[in-house]
Every structure is written in C-alpha cells, then in structure tokens.
C-alpha cells in the first residue's frame, strides 16, 4: 500500500509540472490583460505585470459592446446547442441501434463531406439565408450556426447507444413504450456523458464563431455576438493586444464555468446509469 502512495505522489508531481507548462500561455494571456501595450511586448514571458491596469477591461467591455452582445451570444449559443444536441442525439440513436435502409449511404456522404476544406462557405450560406428571408435575423444566425455534419457527435452518440445492453430496451417494450418513448424516456437520459461533450464543444465553437455572425449581423448591430464585438479590437493597422487579452478573459469566463460545472457528469458512465 505504501508503495502505491509514493507512486501516486510522483504522478501528481510530474503532472503538476506538465500542467503548469501546459496552462502557462493561458496564464500569460490573463496577465497580459493587465499590462500596458508597451509592456505586452517588452516584458517577454513574464507573468507578473508591473502594475495592474484595469483600463484594458473597461476598453474591451465598451468596444466590444459587452452589455448587449453578451445577451445575444447566450441566446444564440443556447439555441444552437439545443438544436445540435437534439438532432445528433436522435440520429445517433438510430444509427447506433438499428440497421435501416440508406444508413451506410448517408454515413458515407457525411464522412466524405467533412474532408473538404471549405473556408468560404459564407457565400452560399448567406445566399441561402437570403432566399429564406432570414439573412439579417437571429433565427437565421442560429440556423446557420447549427448547420453542418456534426460527424463526431453523431458517432459518439451512436457508439454510446450501441453499447447500452438490449435488456433495457426489452424492459421498456414490456412496459409498453413505443419507439419514440423508449428513446425519450429510457435511452436519451442515459447519454449524459455524451451530452456533456456535445454541450461543451458546441458551446465553445458557437461562442467563438466569428465570420458567420459578422455577415449576418452586418446591417443589424443590435443582434451581434461577442466574438464580432471583440474583433473590433483587431484593426488593419492598429492592434489592441492588451484589449484583446482582456476581452478574451471576460469572454472565457462563462465557458470555463460551464466546463467546470459539467465535470461531474463525466465520472459516471453507463454503469451508474444502468444500476439506477
């Protein structure tokens, strides 16, 4: 027993060192948000600012129009995450548990699609939103942000659902649950670990997405998101680095809170779920 605890201490020590190096750039960004422009370049890798300048935060807050854009970002992110969660969980369920006509074809198309480096989807997506009459609205933005193949989420869901023992489904059938009820009442709640993954990753992507929100909100500044607002700090000739750092620090907070608060759902996998 004693030997194990020594081994654990070593693991923790090694991990702590690696973790510090790993998180250093992030810490540096936090520290940079208190620095002056000149100090930003002048002090190299130094983590402690000479003095704490809070005006970077004030400038970032005002320039990025945080007050208004925060609300928009939250609306967009929550809606997008909800849509993506619903669509990938539904599809993942049937892909994982059933063999149906056309499954292989559609999976093949999904997989093949993500190989193309599309860096200019903006043009067709914008044209499409225009045809739908949604090119300057939050709904259009939410739809466009929810779009895509989401192959990784589909696969995560499908392999998770596939690993759920058949007995559970049989029990549900005996209880008189139909196809949809079995999914909604029994299966969906089991998939918490995957939901957490989808919520975490999709939130980050939507939260930071820039180009699409920019073009959709071009003529409608009231519905802009944070990432668009923060971009105002990065100009053609003048770049407000400390402002960017400060803005990034503020914008990251909700994401980190989300990540930390979702942690507990990572620990219990199927085992815990099946038992209960």
């Amino acid at each position: 027993m004693k030997k194990i605890s020594v081994g654990k201490i070593v693991i923790y020590l090694v991990l702590a060192v690696i973790a510090f190096i790993w998180v250093y750039p992030f810490l540096w960004m936090v520290s940079a948000s208190f620095k002056t422009q000149s100090e930003f370049f002048g002090s190299g890798l130094n983590l402690i600012p000479q003095a704490f300048h809070f005006d970077n935060f004030i400038r970032a807050w005002n320039n990025a129009n945080f007050g208004v854009y925060f609300k928009n970002t939250i609306i967009v992110t929550i809606s997008v995450v909800a849509i993506v969660l619903m669509s990938t969980s539904l599809a993942g369920y049937v892909i994982g548990r059933y063999a149906f006509i056309g499954k292989k074809v559609i999976l093949g198309i999904f997989m093949a699609s993500i190989t193309i480096p599309l860096v200019f989807t903006v043009i067709p997506v914008y044209e499409l939103l225009k045809e739908l009459g949604l090119e300057q609205s939050l709904i259009g933005l939410i739809l466009a942000e929810s779009g895509g193949g989401h192959v990784i989420f589909l696969m995560l869901f499908s392999s998770f659902y596939a690993s759920i023992p058949n007995e559970m489904e049989e029990a549900a059938t005996i209880d008189g649950c139909g196809f949809f009820q079995t999914y909604a009442k029994i299966m969906f709640p089991l998939a918490k670990p995957i939901m957490v993954t989808v919520v975490t990753m999709q939130s980050i992507w939507t939260w930071n997405s820039f180009l699409l929100p920019l073009i959709v909100t071009l003529n409608n500044p009231e519905i802009r998101t944070l990432a668009v607002g923060l971009y105002a700090l990065r100009g053609e000739n003048v770049v407000d680095w400390t402002g960017i750092a400060a803005g990034a620090c503020i914008a990251i907070v909700p994401i980190v809170i989300l990540f930390v608060s979702l942690q507990k759902y990572f620990v219990d996998g199927i085992a815990g779920a099946v038992k209960s």
């Binding site: 903006v122 180009l211 071009l218 003529n219 105002a232």
Partner: peptide, 25 residues
C-alpha cells in the same frame, strides 16, 4: 450612425457578399 470597422480582408470576405445580396451598408 451605425459604424463598423473591419480589417480589409474581413471586409472583402463578408461585405462583398452582402453588397451582392442587396444588403450593402
């Protein structure tokens, strides 16, 4: 007045589509 500053590259990427779609500033 609603004023937006972009970089020249971003401008080309986004505004040009908006102009063509009849949503020019």
């Amino acid at each position: 007045i609603e004023y937006t500053v972009l970089t020249a590259d971003q401008f080309t990427e986004t505004v040009v589509s908006a102009i063509k779609a009849g949503n020019a500033p």
